[in-house]
């Protein structure tokens, strides 16, 4: 555990909590892509199956359970409790265009051709692109609530911090996971355009709206 990994995890946790609280407090999931949230629930489910097979640390187990629990709670709020506020018309990204290629790739390129390992790989690849329905929704409506942009910033920051974590672990622990690193770079790059808008607009007190 190093400072980048810890702050990355906390940033990820902050993102998840911000989104849950935003929906809960406003009693609305307007502007939130339910599809991205389903993909994240799928990501956590397929990655954390090792909860049943290996114990790493109390921290690791607790965080996994919190992430999974929050992911399903978010999906429940969007598709059940506050379904009336869900903006399905604007959430029109075709997720099969992500899930099918990612599924194929995880069968082809993995560390070990075993069910758990393929599912882990699938979760890593899927996480790198799971935010696309949300970004697509924002580009379609041309704007995002400020609290939604805080959520996205924390979520993007988390993977960027993990990149520094992997550099750290490469030098000090001999840790090197090519699959996680490449997917992590892709994931971080997808947020770059958003990071730019966040810094130039949201941090200066303006609402995030895209030019028509």
């Amino acid at each position: 555990m190093n400072i980048f990994r810890l702050t990355g995890d906390l940033s990820h946790l902050a993102a998840i909590i911000i989104l849950l609280l935003k929906i809960w407090k406003s009693r609305s999931c307007a502007g939130i892509s339910g599809k991205s949230q389903i993909l994240f629930a799928l990501v956590f489910t397929t990655r954390y199956l090792d909860l049943f097979t290996s114990f790493i640390s109390l921290y690791n187990t607790c965080m996994k359970l919190i992430y999974i629990g929050c992911a399903y709670a978010t999906v429940y709020l969007i598709y059940a409790k506050f379904r009336a506020t869900y903006d399905g018309n604007h959430d029109s990204f075709r997720v099969e265009f992500l899930v099918v290629p990612v599924g194929g790739l995880s069968v082809l390129i993995n560390h070990d051709f075993s069910p758990l390992e393929i599912l882990w790989t699938f979760s890593i690849y899927l996480e790198s692109v799971a935010i696309l329905p949300q970004l697509f929704m924002i580009s379609k409506t041309g704007e995002a609530e400020t609290i939604t942009t805080h959520y996205l910033f924390c979520l993007g920051l988390y993977r960027a911090l993990y990149l520094f974590n992997w550099i750290w672990r490469f030098y000090f622990e001999g840790f090197f996971d090519m699959i996680a690193i490449v997917a992590g770079v892709v994931q971080t790059v997808l947020y770059c355009d958003f990071f730019y808008l966040y810094v130039t607009k949201v941090l200066k007190g303006k609402k995030l709206s895209l030019p028509a």
Binding site: R5, D9, H12, D50, I56, N60, M63, K64, Y67, H111, W120, Y162, N165, F170, G174, F175, F176, D177, M178, I179, A180
Partner: peptide, 10 residues
């Protein structure tokens, strides 16, 4: 030095 991967992250 041997470089390895292991799934101990979140």
């Amino acid at each position: 030095r041997e470089f390895t991967y292991k799934h101990d992250e979140l």
